[in-house]
């Protein structure tokens, strides 16, 4: 199995390389360059100077060569929109909000989803069940930006409990975190709740649970030790892709809450034709997705002994 994962790890290299090639070709096919005339009062000579400085006047493969040479040395290139700064420094500044948002949202979605799912299954057809199924349904039917609008209007503008924009600056500054996490996490939470509930119900109908009951074990022990533990196996394997999706798919929430994260920078980079930034973000996200995928496969093998990789 170690061999299998080593091969998978090695396989990441050609995949990521292909990602660079495809992204490079695509972004150069986008109309317009990073330095265009517009409301800025810069002259055409200045634009020509900038294009020359960043090799943008060279053929695309030469540009790709320059890029890959830098990349292999760990240099992700200059940040064309914020001149003078580099993509490395930009990513260094913006990865934290995105990572924090992704991790916190994953935790929120998992905990809420699992808890609601378990409660709904244990107390099947009770008010609790209906409530959590209702939450799961409503939560799943609202795009996160609609939820974001509602949360901001209610908790920031009306009750002034949480800030409307921005992100945490440190330990004590937890308030800006709450609304984005709720907006981003409720849909996956609803999803996890549904899966958990279904999985619980399935396990509860298994023979070995009946056996456990027949043995006279306490209900609490049965639920916690036998049902929950087995029912969470499929849920566990879902967390990888959900985390990857939340880490790489948070840009609308970042955009809406003005969170200085990578997602927002990526959209701005595409609109600003900031080539090195587009490349770097795509590569970073691709790596996150591949690793998450690998972790899922690993988890399958760990939690389900029937699966063997070779």
């Amino acid at each position: 199995m170690t061999g299998y994962f080593l091969r998978r790890l090695l396989w990441m290299i050609p995949i990521l390389w292909l990602v660079t090639v495809i992204t490079f070709l695509l972004m150069h096919a986008v109309q317009g360059g990073p330095f265009e005339a517009g409301e800025s009062k810069s002259s055409s000579a200045a634009r020509a100077a900038l294009n020359a400085k960043y090799h943008l006047d060279q053929p695309i493969w030469t540009q790709y060569g320059y890029y890959m040479r830098g990349l292999l040395q760990g240099d992700l290139g200059p940040d064309l929109v914020n001149q003078g700064s580099s993509v490395n420094s930009l990513l260094k500044q913006s990865w934290r909000p995105t990572a924090e948002l992704g991790v916190l949202t994953t935790i929120y979605a998992t905990v809420v989803g699992v808890v609601l799912g378990i409660l709904a299954a244990v107390k099947r057809n009770s008010i609790l069940d209906h409530l959590s199924v209702g939450f799961a349904t409503i939560g799943a039917s609202m795009p996160n930006f609609v939820l974001g609008i509602m949360l901001v209007l209610l908790f920031a503008v009306k009750f002034k409990i949480f800030p409307a924009v921005g992100w945490s600056h440190g330990i004590t500054d937890w308030r800006p975190v709450v609304l984005p996490v709720l907006a981003l996490g409720s849909l996956p939470a609803a999803y996890i709740a549904r899966i958990t509930r279904a999985s619980m119900l399935e396990v509860m109908g298994q023979d070995y649970i009946r056996t456990a009951r027949a043995k006279g074990l306490r209900e609490r022990v049965i639920v916690m030790r036998h049902i929950v533990r087995n029912a969470l196996i499929p849920v566990l394997t879902l967390i990888g892709p959900i985390a990857a999706g939340l880490l790489t798919g948070s840009f609308i929430i970042e955009y809406f809450f003005s969170i200085p994260g990578i997602g927002r920078a990526y959209v701005q980079a595409i609109l600003g034709r900031d080539y090195p930034m587009i490349m770097a973000t795509t590569l970073l996200y691709a790596t996150v997705i591949i690793v998450a995928n690998l972790v899922v496969d690993l988890m399958y093998a760990v939690v389900d002994p029937r699966i063997r990789y070779s």
């Binding site: 934290r96 990572a99 924090e100 991790v103 916190l104 935790i107 929120y108 945490s168 600056h169 440190g170 330990i171 004590t172 500054d173 937890w174 975190v177 996490v181």
Partner: peptide, 9 residues
């Protein structure tokens, strides 16, 4: 979540 936010910060 809040504890984690604190830890990250």
């Amino acid at each position: 979540g809040l504890t984690l936010a604190a830890a990250c910060g």
